[in-house]
Amino acid sequence: MLEIKNVSKAFKDFTVLEDINLTFENGVYGMLSPNGAGKTTLIKMIVTLLMPDEGEILWNGENISILGGRYREVVGYLPQKFGYYRDDTPTQFLTYIAALNGVDSDVAKERCGKLLERVGLGDVKNKKMKKFSGGMVQRVGIANALMNDPKIVIFDEPTAGLDPMERVRFRNILAELGKTKIVILSTHIVSDIENIANTVVMIKDHRVHICDTIDNILRQTNADNLESAFMNVYEADTLINS
């Protein structure tokens, strides 16, 4: 279980997140908020790229900053901007990431092949990534997030650059992962969340505004679909402010 307790984060005088409390268990969680709401900041704190100013994040009751590498060992992360070495092949790059995650080289080799097949890159696994399209690179990033067989998988804008078929393939992967892992999906594409997420988190005014199932959210916001619910939650403020 991943717990976020009373976490706050500010950059200089600007408060990004305030008193965030969330609990994640196995399943798919969708983070749906407008730009600048603090989704990426929260994700970065979960993957230990940033430290909370207040509060703590616990993995199975232990503070992740104390766990350190033992925690990061169980985390798979696809950042919003996935960086890679252009002169590497997917195999080389994933093997490198596996080494960074302490995965045994034989296991890494086998897992690398399977993951690349799973994301549809089996035919190009030994070609240099500088020749890849954006969607192909993104798929390498998805494979990268799963390389260490994590218990927590976090995807930040994962379907950017993917065509509809690839997007469906990705959703299937997520659905399967959600059965045995904590999957956190941060995206602007409402349909991605609507089709697979069990729980949706909406951040508003630096705090968690909603953390509930889709059905409950639709009821609460009096909406027919998640997109309307999103508009109801955020557009009311926009109309007032304008």
Partner: peptide
């Protein structure tokens, strides 16, 4: 190169990445 390519994020989020 790590900053330019953005690989630093992936590296630092890994088990041994803090020692990269």
């Amino acid at each position: 190169n790590n900053k330019v390519t953005g690989t630093q994020t992936i590296q630092f989020a890994s088990k041994r990445g803090k020692n990269i």
